[in-house]
């Protein structure tokens, strides 16, 4: 028996909104420690990895490890029907060929129940090597979203260059060019609005804005986002998910392969 109940059901809604257009089908791996998912987009350029700790749920029971393969667009479509204040419960028997989703509006005496058929997917797991990144940038997630959105009006790729004097995001296109320079913020009065830049070694790397704009759909999950970069390796864009007490309950990490000179 598997049962996971989340009072802040909007977290599940937001996670699905953040991944459904990047990967169409994926498997959730459920164990006593929590639920996780790893999937690449069809072009094998980006990968999304989601983790939700068992502690992050208000009730969590997993009697034996389960793999729940499903169409994420369908799941997102159904979960979209849940209200932002609804409690969401996911249930599956051990030999599941479907899962049950239960939505309970907090203030009312009604229960909405949906069943979703499961799929047998050939999951292809990629081992992601431990990397000591040369550059780690933490910035407000809405600022990252705006940078990606605005620069994609000009060009298809963004070049991220990080050096001691700050980080620059730049693009060029037929219209002209654009760039944004970010410096580390001085005060820690508003941690959500802070920009912190750690540089071991200066880097300059280019990435497709199309994918970064997909990643930015996770903005509602966290006020801050981190970008980890090293020369000639995939970029990691991470949104850490917190509960009401500000404890970490999971994350969405996106990996994006760089564009290199031919």
């Amino acid at each position: 028996m598997f049962e996971a109940r989340m009072v802040r059901g909007f977290i599940i809604k937001r996670i699905l909104e953040a991944i459904k257009d990047l990967v169409s089908e994926a498997s959730w791996d459920c164990s006593t420690s929590g639920m996780s998912l790893q999937a690449m987009d069809t072009s094998h350029v980006s990968l999304v990895s989601v983790s939700l700790k068992a502690d992050g749920f208000d009730k969590y029971r997993c009697d034996r490890n389960l793999t729940l393969g499903m169409n994420l667009a369908s799941l997102a479509q159904i979960v979209k029907a849940a209200g932002n204040d609804d409690v969401i419960t996911i249930k599956a028997p051990d030999d599941a060929d479907k899962i049950t989703l239960i939505f309970e509006p907090k203030s009312e005496t009604e229960t909405w129940e949906y069943e979703i058929k499961l799929m047998n997917l050939d999951s292809e797991y990629l081992g992601i090597p431990e990397t000591d990144y040369s550059v780690k940038i933490n910035l407000p997630s809405h600022k990252f979203q705006r940078i990606c959105r605005d620069l994609s009006q000009i060009g298809d790729s963004v070049t991220i260059s990080a050096a001691k004097d700050g980080v620059r995001f730049s693009t060029t296109g037929d219209l002209g060019s654009g760039n944004v320079k970010l410096n580390q913020t001085a005060s820690a009065d508003k941690p959500d609005e802070a920009v912190t830049i750690k540089i071991e070694e200066p880097i300059i790397l280019s990435f497709a804005l199309k994918y970064l704009n997909h990643f930015a759909r996770a903005t509602a999950l966290s006020p801050q986002v981190s970008l980890s970069l090293s020369k000639d390796v995939p970029l990691v864009v991470e949104y850490v998910i917190h509960d009401d007490d500000d404890d970490e309950i999971g994350y969405i990490r996106y990996y994006l392969a760089p564009k290199i000179e031919e």
Partner: peptide, 14 residues
């Protein structure tokens, strides 16, 4: 022009 790399080059199948 720049060429888009694929993740398979960096991450190993396990």
């Amino acid at each position: 022009d720049k060429k888009q790399m694929k993740l398979d080059k960096f991450f190993k199948k396990s």
